[in-house]
Amino acid sequence: MPPVPSVTPDWAYERQHWRRGYFRVAGVDEAGRGAWAGPVTVAAVILPGLATEYPFRDSKQLTAAQREEYAAEVRRVALAYAVEHAWPDEIDRLNILGATHAAALRALERLTPPPQALVTDYLKLRTALPLSAPPKADALSYSVAAASLLAKTERDAVMRELDAQYPGYGFAAHKGYGAPAHRAALEELGVSAVHRRSFAPIRRLLEDGEGGLFPAWA
Protein backbone atom coordinates (compact mmCIF):
# COMPACT_ATOMS: atom_id res chain seq x y z
CA MET A 1 0.00 0.00 0.00
CA PRO A 2 1.34 3.51 -0.77
CA PRO A 3 2.60 5.47 2.24
CA VAL A 4 0.23 7.75 4.12
CA PRO A 5 0.56 11.33 2.81
CA SER A 6 2.75 13.68 4.82
CA VAL A 7 -0.03 16.21 5.58
CA THR A 8 -1.22 15.10 8.99
CA PRO A 9 -4.43 16.26 10.66
CA ASP A 10 -4.53 16.98 14.37
CA TRP A 11 -7.01 17.88 17.10
CA ALA A 12 -6.46 21.65 17.20
CA TYR A 13 -10.01 22.62 16.19
CA GLU A 14 -11.60 19.94 18.37
CA ARG A 15 -9.52 21.11 21.36
CA GLN A 16 -10.97 24.59 21.02
CA HIS A 17 -14.38 23.06 21.77
CA TRP A 18 -13.09 20.59 24.37
CA ARG A 19 -11.70 23.52 26.41
CA ARG A 20 -15.23 24.93 26.58
CA GLY A 21 -16.68 21.65 27.80
CA TYR A 22 -18.00 20.40 24.44
CA PHE A 23 -16.52 16.92 24.15
CA ARG A 24 -18.75 15.38 21.46
CA VAL A 25 -17.43 17.26 18.44
CA ALA A 26 -18.76 16.16 15.04
CA GLY A 27 -16.69 16.56 11.92
CA VAL A 28 -18.71 17.25 8.76
CA ASP A 29 -17.63 16.99 5.13
CA GLU A 30 -19.15 16.42 1.72
CA ALA A 31 -18.34 14.77 -1.58
CA GLY A 32 -19.70 15.50 -5.04
CA ARG A 33 -20.59 19.19 -4.88
CA GLY A 34 -19.03 19.90 -8.27
CA ALA A 35 -20.32 16.83 -10.10
CA TRP A 36 -22.85 17.11 -12.93
CA ALA A 37 -24.74 13.97 -11.94
CA GLY A 38 -25.62 11.97 -8.87
CA PRO A 39 -26.04 13.14 -5.29
CA VAL A 40 -23.99 15.38 -3.10
CA THR A 41 -23.14 13.24 -0.08
CA VAL A 42 -22.50 14.55 3.43
CA ALA A 43 -21.08 12.63 6.37
CA ALA A 44 -20.94 13.56 10.05
CA VAL A 45 -18.60 11.74 12.43
CA ILE A 46 -17.96 11.98 16.17
CA LEU A 47 -14.66 10.39 17.10
CA PRO A 48 -13.80 9.47 20.70
CA GLY A 49 -12.30 12.50 22.41
CA LEU A 50 -9.06 10.78 23.34
CA ALA A 51 -6.68 12.78 21.14
CA THR A 52 -5.66 9.49 19.51
CA GLU A 53 -3.62 9.58 16.32
CA TYR A 54 -5.43 7.99 13.37
CA PRO A 55 -4.39 7.25 9.78
CA PHE A 56 -7.39 9.29 8.58
CA ARG A 57 -6.57 11.90 5.95
CA ASP A 58 -8.42 14.07 3.48
CA SER A 59 -9.90 11.50 1.12
CA LYS A 60 -8.48 13.35 -1.90
CA GLN A 61 -4.95 12.53 -0.70
CA LEU A 62 -5.54 8.77 -0.64
CA THR A 63 -5.88 5.92 -3.08
CA ALA A 64 -9.24 4.19 -3.49
CA ALA A 65 -7.95 1.20 -1.52
CA GLN A 66 -6.76 3.42 1.32
CA ARG A 67 -10.08 5.25 1.41
CA GLU A 68 -12.02 2.01 1.76
CA GLU A 69 -9.67 0.70 4.46
CA TYR A 70 -9.75 3.89 6.50
CA ALA A 71 -13.51 4.36 6.05
CA ALA A 72 -14.02 0.92 7.60
CA GLU A 73 -11.80 2.01 10.49
CA VAL A 74 -13.88 5.19 10.92
CA ARG A 75 -17.02 3.09 11.28
CA ARG A 76 -15.27 0.83 13.76
CA VAL A 77 -13.95 3.52 16.11
CA ALA A 78 -16.50 6.33 15.79
CA LEU A 79 -18.71 7.21 18.69
CA ALA A 80 -21.38 8.05 16.10
CA TYR A 81 -21.59 8.59 12.35
CA ALA A 82 -24.24 9.24 9.70
CA VAL A 83 -24.28 9.77 5.94
CA GLU A 84 -26.96 11.60 3.96
CA HIS A 85 -27.46 12.24 0.24
CA ALA A 86 -29.07 15.20 -1.51
CA TRP A 87 -30.25 13.98 -4.92
CA PRO A 88 -30.47 16.03 -8.12
CA ASP A 89 -34.11 17.02 -7.60
CA GLU A 90 -33.21 18.57 -4.22
CA ILE A 91 -30.09 20.16 -5.67
CA ASP A 92 -32.10 21.68 -8.53
CA ARG A 93 -34.72 22.94 -6.08
CA LEU A 94 -32.44 24.38 -3.38
CA ASN A 95 -29.19 24.96 -5.35
CA ILE A 96 -26.05 22.98 -4.54
CA LEU A 97 -25.10 24.89 -1.41
CA GLY A 98 -28.61 24.74 0.01
CA ALA A 99 -28.88 21.03 -0.70
CA THR A 100 -25.47 20.41 0.89
CA HIS A 101 -26.55 22.26 4.02
CA ALA A 102 -29.82 20.33 4.14
CA ALA A 103 -28.06 16.98 3.85
CA ALA A 104 -25.53 18.01 6.52
CA LEU A 105 -28.28 18.93 8.97
CA ARG A 106 -30.06 15.62 8.31
CA ALA A 107 -26.84 13.73 9.01
CA LEU A 108 -26.29 15.66 12.24
CA GLU A 109 -29.84 14.95 13.39
CA ARG A 110 -29.18 11.21 13.05
CA LEU A 111 -26.12 11.19 15.32
CA THR A 112 -26.64 9.33 18.58
CA PRO A 113 -25.39 10.58 20.97
CA PRO A 114 -25.92 14.06 19.52
CA PRO A 115 -23.01 16.41 18.91
CA GLN A 116 -22.21 19.30 21.22
CA ALA A 117 -20.08 21.22 18.67
CA LEU A 118 -19.05 21.01 15.02
CA VAL A 119 -16.00 21.30 12.81
CA THR A 120 -16.74 21.55 9.09
CA ASP A 121 -14.74 22.05 5.91
CA TYR A 122 -15.76 25.70 5.44
CA LEU A 123 -19.42 24.71 5.53
CA LYS A 124 -21.07 27.50 7.52
CA LEU A 125 -24.18 25.72 8.70
CA ARG A 126 -27.09 27.50 10.32
CA THR A 127 -27.07 25.79 13.68
CA ALA A 128 -27.20 26.68 17.35
CA LEU A 129 -24.21 24.43 17.98
CA PRO A 130 -20.75 25.99 18.39
CA LEU A 131 -19.16 25.79 14.95
CA SER A 132 -15.64 25.98 13.55
CA ALA A 133 -15.58 26.13 9.75
CA PRO A 134 -11.98 26.62 8.58
CA PRO A 135 -11.00 26.08 4.95
CA LYS A 136 -9.17 22.84 4.18
CA ALA A 137 -10.44 21.31 7.42
CA ASP A 138 -10.50 17.87 5.79
CA ALA A 139 -6.69 18.04 5.74
CA LEU A 140 -6.36 19.62 9.20
CA SER A 141 -8.90 17.94 11.48
CA TYR A 142 -9.13 14.25 12.29
CA SER A 143 -12.91 14.50 12.67
CA VAL A 144 -13.41 16.19 9.31
CA ALA A 145 -10.96 13.84 7.61
CA ALA A 146 -12.99 10.91 8.97
CA ALA A 147 -16.17 12.48 7.59
CA SER A 148 -14.49 13.03 4.21
CA LEU A 149 -13.65 9.33 4.04
CA LEU A 150 -17.23 8.24 4.66
CA ALA A 151 -18.71 10.82 2.28
CA LYS A 152 -16.33 9.91 -0.54
CA THR A 153 -16.60 6.12 -0.24
CA GLU A 154 -20.39 6.18 0.18
CA ARG A 155 -20.83 8.44 -2.83
CA ASP A 156 -18.47 6.36 -4.96
CA ALA A 157 -20.56 3.30 -4.14
CA VAL A 158 -23.71 5.15 -5.21
CA MET A 159 -22.10 6.19 -8.49
CA ARG A 160 -21.13 2.59 -9.22
CA GLU A 161 -24.78 1.62 -8.72
CA LEU A 162 -25.89 4.42 -11.03
CA ASP A 163 -23.40 3.21 -13.63
CA ALA A 164 -25.28 -0.09 -13.74
CA GLN A 165 -28.67 1.64 -13.88
CA TYR A 166 -27.63 4.16 -16.55
CA PRO A 167 -25.08 2.37 -18.75
CA GLY A 168 -23.00 4.34 -21.16
CA TYR A 169 -22.37 7.46 -19.11
CA GLY A 170 -19.30 6.10 -17.33
CA PHE A 171 -20.43 7.08 -13.84
CA ALA A 172 -18.26 4.40 -12.20
CA ALA A 173 -15.15 5.95 -13.73
CA HIS A 174 -15.66 9.72 -13.49
CA LYS A 175 -18.23 9.73 -10.65
CA GLY A 176 -20.43 12.25 -12.45
CA TYR A 177 -17.82 14.97 -12.85
CA GLY A 178 -17.22 16.85 -16.10
CA ALA A 179 -14.65 14.52 -17.63
CA PRO A 180 -14.27 14.41 -21.43
CA ALA A 181 -15.83 10.92 -21.47
CA HIS A 182 -18.84 12.27 -19.59
CA ARG A 183 -19.25 15.11 -22.05
CA ALA A 184 -19.02 12.68 -24.97
CA ALA A 185 -21.66 10.44 -23.39
CA LEU A 186 -24.00 13.39 -22.95
CA GLU A 187 -23.58 14.29 -26.60
CA GLU A 188 -24.53 10.75 -27.57
CA LEU A 189 -27.13 9.79 -24.95
CA GLY A 190 -28.57 13.07 -23.76
CA VAL A 191 -29.42 13.97 -20.16
CA SER A 192 -30.36 11.21 -17.74
CA ALA A 193 -32.71 11.28 -14.76
CA VAL A 194 -29.76 11.62 -12.37
CA HIS A 195 -28.17 14.68 -13.99
CA ARG A 196 -28.41 18.04 -12.24
CA ARG A 197 -30.52 20.12 -14.56
CA SER A 198 -29.71 23.39 -12.78
CA PHE A 199 -25.98 23.03 -13.46
CA ALA A 200 -24.91 25.21 -16.38
CA PRO A 201 -23.47 22.47 -18.65
CA ILE A 202 -26.61 20.34 -18.30
CA ARG A 203 -28.99 23.28 -18.50
CA ARG A 204 -27.34 24.50 -21.71
CA LEU A 205 -27.50 21.05 -23.24
CA LEU A 206 -31.22 20.88 -22.47
CA GLU A 207 -31.74 24.35 -23.93
CA ASP A 208 -30.01 23.22 -27.12
CA GLY A 209 -32.12 20.07 -27.23
CA GLU A 210 -30.93 16.65 -26.15
CA GLY A 211 -30.05 15.78 -29.74
CA GLY A 212 -27.85 18.87 -30.12
CA LEU A 213 -24.13 19.00 -29.66
CA PHE A 214 -22.75 19.50 -26.20
CA PRO A 215 -21.44 23.08 -25.91
CA ALA A 216 -17.69 23.54 -26.09
CA TRP A 217 -15.88 24.30 -22.86
CA ALA A 218 -12.48 25.86 -22.40
Rank of each mutant, 00 (worst) to 15 (best):
P113K: 02
V45N: 04
T120D: 08
T127Q: 14
A51D: 15
L50Y: 14
R20Y: 12
T63P: 04
A44Q: 03
F56A: 07
G34Y: 11
V40G: 10
L111Y: 04
V42F: 05
A35H: 09
A51L: 14
V28Q: 04
D121F: 00
L111T: 05
P88V: 03
P39H: 04
L47H: 04
R76F: 05
E68Y: 00
V42W: 10
R19A: 06
T52P: 02
V119W: 02
T41Y: 13
Y54Q: 09
E30P: 03
R106K: 11
A103M: 01
V83P: 08
A71D: 04
A31N: 07
N95A: 10
Y81G: 04
L105T: 14
L97C: 13
G98E: 10
V119R: 02
G21N: 07
T41G: 07
F56H: 09
E68H: 03
L131Q: 01
G98M: 08
L125F: 00
G49V: 11
E30D: 09
H85S: 14
R76H: 07
Q16R: 14
Y54G: 05
A64K: 14
A104V: 09
G34S: 07
A72E: 15
E53T: 15
T100K: 03
A26C: 10
H101D: 10
A26Y: 09
D92E: 11
A35Q: 07
A102G: 13
A99V: 10
Y22T: 12
L108F: 12
L50S: 15
W36I: 07
A51S: 15
S132L: 15
R75Y: 05
H17F: 06
L123K: 02
T120W: 06
P55K: 00
P113T: 06
A65Q: 07
R15Q: 15
A102D: 13
P55T: 06
A117T: 03
V119C: 03
K124E: 11
E53H: 11
L108W: 13
A64D: 14
G34C: 08
P130H: 04
A72W: 13
L131K: 06
Y54T: 10
G49A: 15
L50P: 12
W11K: 08
L47D: 05
V45A: 01
G98P: 05
A31L: 07
L111C: 11
A82D: 09
A104N: 10
E30A: 01
V119H: 01
G21H: 06
L129D: 02
P114L: 03
H101V: 08
A71S: 01
E84R: 02
T100P: 07
A80L: 00
W36E: 03
L125M: 08
L105K: 13
Y13S: 12
G21Q: 09
A102K: 13
T120A: 01
R93H: 13
E14N: 00
D29S: 11
E53P: 02
V74Q: 08
V45K: 05
L47W: 09
L129K: 03
F56N: 07
Y122P: 01
L79I: 12
A26Q: 09
L47S: 04
Y13N: 11
Y70V: 01
Q16F: 12
R93G: 13
E69C: 03
A72H: 08
L94Q: 14
A128T: 14
